[in-house]
Design a protein around this nucleic acid. Structure first.
Lengths: 131, 131
DNA sequence: TCATAAATGCAAATGATTTGCAATTGTGGT
DNA sequence: ACCACAATTGCAAATCATTTGCATTTATGA
């Protein structure tokens, strides 16, 4: 179990109510959430600006990663311990599935870069929608 | 050599001056361009809205692909014949390099989706900036 | 050359994200 | 438990990317 409060304390940041609520929303979700979706899932209507600020803070801490699905906005998900996902979005029915591949290490070796973040998302038509 | 004029004609679209100029800008570029960069590189100041519309048209025709680098806007590049690229962006110095890997077929098999588009971009720190 | 649908430019609208600032709230020390 | 203070919030307004409506212009094929 990751102790987010400790992570934030060590970074000299406060563990505030809005931050806690955003974490909970992300933990409960079973897919990456947009800012608006987080907004809707958080009780007591936290301000949108605070959610944006919270997410940026989490991105810097490495708690959260960005999932760009080409929808015109970003989605975010908890990084969790080690393992992470990539997604296929069906552009017909909106279904989102995760794929279990990642090239991180391969790319670090190929490029000689220290990779900080990456995205690898696919858009297509799922088996059912293809007919 | 790809004949863009023919492609467009066959799709029932006009090969207009703005479209031609956007194509030229993309052909001359050695990296994916943002809408603003295209705007700046096109002579005679085509309207921004026309560039957006042109790019959408090219995306539909499959002439152009979207390259999301997490910069807050999109970049676009010509698809060319067959081969395409993925990128690593150095967040320190802004250098952009391409990587020669692609998982398209592997993912189509794994997921049983018809993949229409995908992104796979990396952000990190290049060898020189790491020191 | 002409007719006509398609495309453009302009200005205004939209949607996502950011920012300034006064009011509020965790946190560490007492 | 209380205080002091910096960090954070909420609100409203600003910004930036992208889209849209509409009157005017422009390729295209007859």
């Amino acid at each position: 179990m990751i102790n987010y409060k400790t992570i934030m304390k060590e970074a000299g940041l406060k563990f505030t109510r809005p931050r806690s609520l955003v974490l909970t929303a992300l933990q409960k979700a079973n897919e990456p959430l947009s800012i608006k979706e987080i907004y809707k899932r958080v009780p007591n209507r936290i301000d949108l600006a605070s959610i944006y600020r919270t997410i940026h803070c989490f991105l810097e801490l490495g708690i959260v990663r960005e999932v760009p699905l080409g929808e015109g906005y970003q989605r975010y998900e908890l990084v969790g311990e080690g393992k992470h996902y990539h997604y296929v979005l069906c552009v017909e029915c909106g279904k989102l599935e995760d794929i279990d591949i990642c090239l991180l290490e391969q790319v670090e070796k190929m490029t000689n870069y220290k990779i900080l973040s990456h995205s690898m998302e696919f858009q297509g038509i799922c088996h059912r929608c293809t007919g």
